[in-house]
Structure formats: structure tokens, C-alpha cells
Amino acid sequence: MRAIWKGAVSFGLVSVPVKLYAATESHDVSFRQVHAKDGGRIKYQRVCSLDGEEVAYADIAKGYETEDGEMVILTDDDMAELPSTSSREIAVEKFVPREQIDPLLFEKSYYLEPEGQGAKPYALLRQALKDADRMAVVTVALRQRTTIAVLRVRETEAGEVIVLQTMMWPDEVRVPDFKVEVDDAKPQEVKMAHMLVETLAGDFDASEFEDDYAGAVEALVKSKIDGGEIKRTETSTKTSGEVVDLLAALQKSVAAAKTARGEESDDSDAPAAKKSAAKKSPAKKTAAKKTAAKKTAAKKSAAKKSTSKKAAAKKAS
């Protein structure tokens, strides 16, 4: 794993230098949107909803939409004036009982690893949290914004580690706009519900559960590959062991671009291999003829100079 943040946990006068690692990773199956006819990837353009023109990335700004639909444009200078922090401190505000924190508030999880001389105070904090059965409520600056989080102890295959879990702000938790109202349940119905709970009671083991959807998708894709159901496109990054001629691919791209603009492609767009093979022999012959002509001219020039010198010598005598 690669550390994404470095700082220190501070509680009282104690400071624990730590590294932060992402504790989770997504294994969701992702699909690309493609043209069903030929498998070509679908591209999207940044188009202005008012004039219909494509907008360059450099011309895109941040906009805040008001409740009445008005748009407020925020410049880079405006954004720079907003409160931000780059503190490298995880400040412990208080230690609270576990049951007081609703799991609904939890957002992202990170592992904390002690750095340098922080191993001993890290171990002391870990033991204190575990013995007190409490979580430490902290404030921390991640990605230029201060957020609240908790520190708790988690048992892993590598041993017990401290986990930092960022939390939603209270106003980010939605309140349901519905109520469930029923008549009082009969005692026998309540008893049967309790029996059902007891029948299915047990301990949680995450390894008992499996993402069967991802496995089914992989099996489906493999069966299609084995059956030859593959769309080969010019932008495919993998081939059946064939070496891609980069120059030829570039030339094809130029030709395709010209065709899209309504221009005619010339011989310069032809694959390099064909052009080279067609002009190899004539090129050598032409070069040979030019060399022979230059040598003949040089000999004639030298002969003329020699004759002139002899004539001049005879006159002088």
C-alpha cells in the first residue's frame, strides 16, 4: 500500500506521527458505453447548453446554482479566498462510547500506521481505546478541507490497528419523509418474530459472503471470448499476438481525420511499409546515377585545369 497522507495524532501533550492508508478499494464491475454495431467507444463533448458550442476545458469555470435557477460564476481567485487548511494534525476532541455514534455517519476508512518513534504512543492509544470501549472523535484536514472523524481499533490478520473513519456532517444526513404506522401487533405475532430472529441468529463472518455478480460477469465475458464474440476496433489496445505498426496506425488516423473533414487522402497517407517497398529499388538507382554524374563532372573539371596549366607554362617559356 502507498501512504496518501502523513501527519500526527495529538491528544493532550502526546503526539503520534502516523501515515494514512486507504483501508478499502472498490471491486465494482465497470462497463464502457459502446456502439452496439461495431463496438466503438462512445465519446462525450463539453457543450454549452445555451449556444450549443463545444467549450474548451480552459474556458470552464465553477458555477453555483441558486434556488431560483440563477448561476453565480466563481473564479479561481474567489475559490482561493475560501477557508482551507493544510494542517497535518489529527486532533482528538473527546473519547465517546461506541453506541453514541450512528454508523450512518461513517464515510471513508483509513488505516493509521505509526512512523518513526511513534510506535509506543500508538500502542498506548490503541490499548486505551480498546480497554475503554470508546472511539476518539477527531478533526482532520484532508484534501484541503477540515472534517470530523473517529479513531477506533480494528482486528485484522496483521494484528490490531487503529482505523480513522471520516464522517458526514450532521446536516448531510437526510430525514425520511415517510412514516410507517401499523396497528398493535398481536402477542403471538411478536413471539413468532422473536423465534425467527433466534432461528437465524449467528456471528458475522464477512468471508461467508461472495460477490456472485462480479463472478458471473467474468464467466460471461470469458465464454464470449472463447466463442470468438469479440469486436475488433482500430482503437483496440490488445490484439491476437500481432505487433501494431505505430507509424501505419498514425497514418490511418490522419487519413480517417481527412475523410471526416471531407478531404481526399493522398499517397502520403499510405502505410509506410508499402511506400518503402515500392520506392526502395528506384531510390538506390537514382542515387547511383547522381553519384556517377558527379564523378564524371569532377574528372572533366580536373582535366581542363591541367590543360590550362600546361598551356600557361609553354607561353612562359
Rank of each mutant, 00 (worst) to 15 (best):
K314Q: 10
E67L: 11
V182S: 15
E181R: 12
I101A: 07
G12N: 07
D267F: 14
A288Q: 07
D51Q: 02
E53A: 03
V92T: 11
M168Y: 13
E229T: 05
I42K: 10
V96F: 01
G12W: 11
R261C: 01
S236M: 03
I230F: 09
K279H: 15
P271I: 08
V140A: 00
I162K: 02
L13H: 08
T286P: 06
K252E: 08
I73L: 05
C48R: 03
T233Y: 04
V140T: 00
K304H: 04
D205P: 02
A278H: 05
T235R: 07
Y111S: 00
T156W: 07
Q188A: 15
L105Y: 07
D131K: 11
A149F: 00
E115P: 04
L246A: 06
S265N: 03
V92D: 04
G118S: 01
E65L: 05
Q100F: 10
F178Y: 11
D205G: 01
I225A: 07
V254L: 09
L247W: 04
D184M: 13
R32E: 13
K43P: 00
S308D: 14
D77H: 06
W169L: 09
F204T: 03
Y44R: 03
A193S: 13
D77V: 05
Q251L: 13
Q117I: 05
I4R: 10
D269T: 14
V217D: 01
V153W: 04
A123S: 04
R126Q: 02
E25V: 03
M192N: 14
Y122K: 00
T307D: 09
K191G: 14
A136F: 01
P83R: 10
A249C: 06
V182L: 15
A56S: 01
R41D: 06
S281I: 13
G69V: 03
K290R: 15
T296L: 10
S207H: 05
A206R: 00
A128G: 08
A287Q: 12
Q188C: 11
K19T: 03
A316D: 11
T259R: 15
E181G: 09
A3C: 08
R41E: 06
H35E: 14
A201W: 09
Q188R: 15
P103F: 03
A185V: 12
V14P: 01
W5D: 02
S223G: 15
K222P: 01
Q33R: 15
H27D: 10
A293W: 06
T291M: 11
D183N: 15
A141D: 01
H194A: 12
S308E: 14
E53D: 07
L112C: 02
A22Q: 11
E70C: 04
V243K: 13
V182N: 15
L250E: 03
R88Y: 08
A132D: 15
F95H: 06
E218S: 06
W169C: 03
T166C: 02
V197R: 11
S268N: 11
E65T: 02
A316N: 05
L220K: 13
K179V: 14
L220H: 09
S281P: 05
T291I: 10
A255D: 10
K43M: 07
T199P: 02
